[in-house]
Amino acid sequence: MNKIDEQLNLWANGRLPEAERQALEKKMAEDPALAREAEFLKALRQTVQNEPVTPPGELGLARLQKAMREEPDEAPEMPPRKNFWKPVAIAACLMVAVQAALLLGPTLWKGDTAVDISPASGEGIPAGPRLQIAFAPETTAADIQAAVLSVNGSIVAGPSALGVFRLGLPEGVSTEAAVETLQAFEFVDEVIAP
């Protein structure tokens, strides 16, 4: 049960590397018992290889094909949606925003104009409609940029603690069209137009 045992098997199968084969055959030449053992293994391999066998053939194939047809259609399983809380969070944010507007409205608004609020940056906030949007966890900054620019929008608030952004759209833009454009991105989880 030593190394030469495996070498003899590999030699009988013609799988022994050339250098080892030469060394082993040299040993065989000097050791008639080893040579007879090798001859036995070669004969064993030959007889085993020549052993006739009749597999099931086409009948077996037909049986397999029938079993394959009976297999349930293995559509790739979609993992259950884990971020079901995002629509809930967006709705909650909307409710808070509406409540705040109702509570503060009388003092902050005169007619149709906001009087005391202006952006600290001095830049104008898009005057068009607003959207709430949430992205998939693995979304990159470049993805978010691409999505926002696709609707000529800008981020006017967010992300909130729950990852919700508020987008401002240019005046006159169709909200529905913008929602549709944003939803086309794979990494956009939810878009809600108030």
Partner: peptide
């Protein structure tokens, strides 16, 4: 006896 085994192993039926 290796010689006996060697003679027998060449016969497929005996080996089986």
């Amino acid at each position: 006896d290796l010689e006996q085994a060697l003679a027998a192993v060449k016969d497929g039926q005996v080996l089986r």
